[in-house]
Design a protein around this nucleic acid. Structure first.
Length: 461
RNA sequence: UCCGCGAUAGCUCAAUGGUAGAGCAUGCGGCUGUUAACCGCAGGGUUGCAGGUUCGAGUCCUGCUCGCGGAGCCA
């Protein structure tokens, strides 16, 4: 975009330390580069904006256009006789999503979308867009998903993805500020981590098959033994042929793992993190949540302590609500909803029957039928957003568990080493990013919470 | 894998078994404060595919394809 001979750029390269960015702009005004979100700093000044046509309206001798530049919306106005003839005519050539520049003096204007307006003194068309498929009217979800690469330009998607960004940022903040090490787990793995889910398989040179990871947890445990406290943050893959609104085949998960933590420490960590994430979203992304029409009353409740109930107590709640639930089963989607409806904030359900949980979870010393596991159920029917446990740290117990689950011991030798060389109690959990964002935004489907969702029947765009 | 629903103009949707239509989008014209602007005119269709019933099928029947929602499974 910038010419290498742009005087502003040259100054920037020569004395970057001494000349603040904006003072460089003021010298070459009105050609200064400004983003719409910063217009409040430029009221009364001439600026040049670059972006795309969001919408336009015309009325004989007056023209309105709305530009978006990725940071916001601003309205440009042109009146016949006042605006340059050429700009007035160029307006008519602009189609939705055409790229262009406009220059003019910024003013506050209540009637304008975004609150600011510009009397257009100059307009430069960069490219006249072909007929844009996403019109300002309603569209079906499938049509929009086929055009996801364009749909990302709309205000609703901006709001959701900005909340997603904030969620990820606050998670990193949380762990980084507590001295956790970010440990990146591999995507290609030699075998199942949990032994239950269906995995995506791919050929791996002469070494046979590799599988896309379904969890970085086992590697996180190695990290915890090396660094004390770590978090794994990356994409995970599940090949289940599931087609519900709570499922993606590719999703992001953050998985902290802490040496010397027991189940209670684990729950303390989970609720502290959850509080931080939700309160940060409320603090920094309220305009976006308003755009989405989110009622934030329930979110404001997300403060410590979160209620903790045992699996047995959850089963009691189900029975009291007339649900014929059999002890020993895992909670289904509707079961989770019924349990979570009893509380005004996320609820932690701990000590599940070991038979429905993964092989690596430690048994409850008080009751060998129970695993020291915890799930966090989000309110309002959003279901499980966190699953975690204290891990089995005893070599012999873990060996027995691997045999019971018919897992190939050879593939887990490295994992067993963690129990051979200075094993200690440790615990961790995984938080699903998309489910968390979906809950915070109040969406009815996970697919809008990730830029390019991967689902059983969708691999494009 | 199972259960339910759906597929009509570029998009969103109408149409008792009887001439396939509206709004938006597109093109042209009008309008000096619009807010998914508005008003007028115009172009735009192998009704998902293949059979069948019928004088006549977008509509009824059979099969198929694709999609959506739910169950199971899961974050």
């Amino acid at each position: 975009m910038h010419s290498p001979f742009d005087p502003c750029e040259i100054v920037w390269y020569i004395v970057p330390v001494f000349i603040p960015f904006r003072s460089c702009h003021s010298k070459v005004s009105p050609m200064s580069r400004v983003y719409i979100e910063d217009l409040h700093l430029h009221v009364g000044q001439p600026v040049t904006l670059r972006g795309w046509l969001y919408n336009k309206r015309s009325s004989g001798k007056i023209r309105f256009l709305v530009m978006r530049d990725g940071t916001g919306l601003v309205q440009g106005v042109m009146a016949k006789g006042t605006a340059p003839e050429e700009a007035f005519n160029d307006f008519d050539a602009l189609t939705q999503e055409s790229s262009f520049e406009m220059t003019g003096v910024v003013r506050q204007e209540k009637r304008a979308p975004g609150g600011y307006e510009m009397d257009v003194a100059g307009l430069k068309i960069l490219m006249v867009a072909h007929e844009y498929p996403i019109t300002p009217k309603e569209h079906g979800i499938d049509f929009l998903m086929d055009r996801r690469h364009l749909w990302l330009r709309s205000s609703r998607q901006h709001a959701i993805l900005r909340v997603r960004h904030q969620v990820i940022r606050s998670i990193r903040e949380f762990f980084d500020s507590r001295g956790f090490l970010l440990l990146d787990a591999p995507i290609f793995t030699p075998a199942a981590c949990e032994g239950t889910s269906t995995l995506f398989e791919t050929k791996y040179f002469d070494l046979g098959s590799a599988y896309l990871t379904q969890s970085g947890q086992l590697y996180g445990e190695a990290g915890a033994m090396a660094f004390g406290k770590v978090y794994v943050f990356g994409p995970t893959f599940r090949a289940e042929k599931s087609k519900t609104r709570r499922h993606l085949t590719e999703f992001w998960m953050v998985e902290p793992e802490v040496a010397f933590n027991d189940l209670n420490d684990n729950m303390d960590l989970a609720e502290e993190m959850l509080e931080h994430v939700v309160q940060s979203a409320l603090k920094y992304r309220m305009p976006e949540l308003e755009t989405l029409g989110r009622n934030t009353a329930m979110l404001a409740n997300v403060k410590r302590p979160l209620p903790r109930i045992t699996y047995d107590e959850a089963v009691e709640i189900l029975h009291k609500n007339g649900i014929a639930f059999e002890w020993g089963n895992d909670l289904g989607g509707t079961d989770e909803t019924v349990v979570s409806q009893q509380f005004d904030r996320p609820v932690m359900v701990h000590r599940y029957p070991a038979q429905v949980k993964a092989f690596y979870m430690k048994r409850d010393p008080q009751n060998a039928k129970l695993a020291l596991a915890v799930d966090v159920l989000a309110p309002e029917g959003y279901g499980e957003i966190i699953g975690g446990s204290q891990r089995e740290d005893d070599l012999d117990a873990l060996l027995g568990r691997i045999k019971e689950h018919n897992l190939p011991q050879e593939a887990f030798e490295w994992y067993l080493d963690l129990r051979r060389y200075g094993s200690v109690p440790h615990a961790g959990f995984g938080l699903g990013i998309e489910r968390t964002v979906s809950w915070i935004c109040g969406l009815d489907h996970l697919r809008e919470t990730i830029p390019f969702p991967r689902m059983i029947y969708r691999l494009t765009p």
